[in-house]
Design a protein around this nucleic acid. Sequence first.
DNA 1: CAACGGACCTGCCTGC
DNA 2: TGCAGGCAGGTCCGTT
Length: 271
Amino acid sequence: MPELPEVETTRRGIEPLVAGARVERVVVRERRLRWPIPWQVERKLTGARMLGVRRRAKYLLLESERGTAIAHLGMSGSFSVVAVGTEPDIHDHYDMVFDGGKALRFTDPRKFGSLLWGGREPLRHKLLADLGPEPFSAEFSGAWLKACSLGRRVAVKSFLMMPAVVAGVGNIYASEALYRAGIHPRRSAGRIALRRYDRLASAIRGVLSEAIEVGGTTLRDFADARGRPGYFSQRLDVYDRAGRNCRRCGSEIRRCVIGQRASYYCLRCQT
DNA sequence: CAACGGACCTGCCTGC
DNA sequence: TGCAGGCAGGTCCGTT
């Protein structure tokens, strides 16, 4: 479900609740998410003061004075803020209960999400250590993409979705960014010129920042911490628009499958 | 090494 | 109406 804009929207929604609050307890109802939730999370967080919520790629870092819990939303996960005592639903897998009568509740029908313990240096956690640059960092550029792609024959669309290449780009925004940059999603990553990668890096930053501004993309069920949908779905140029007309040239938008994922592009605008 | 397919799990939609 | 099949916003891991 969520890519960088949706995770960032979630972060902004839960930060006011979390920052400065004290954890009264952590209630785990389903420990078997993508990985079992380690007992350390409850042990360390209970009684701890929370410092804030940061984001790295699609991970949310819930920082406390005793270390950081690392949450991932997977494909179908979301956080919501509930009043203490609100009856949990079947897919509400854990709550972090804070002083002040509110709790952070994690819901995830598919259980692809995760909650891990990152200790004092969460960025060194195995799952975060090898992540590529954040798209809004100075490190991320066309030159970075070019350097990363040398000698690689994988489709550029799959390449963009690799966590080690750039953090936070998933299936929707990979298609959207390639459309904006005029690059065909099947083109080999190693056969793209630096200039085109410069355009692509800008397109990635552009599409992600516009999506964040409007609260992300809701196709089926994404909602922010207050239950509100994201409005970027109205601005998608290609994703989920197969058979409709390209907003730029009027040609038909095509759907194909690349790396087992649905991909969308304009045959005329993207080469 | 790079690339690919399978795996994890549930819900929803389509078509027979 | 029921049921099978396909599809879904992620990404790790084992195998080629």
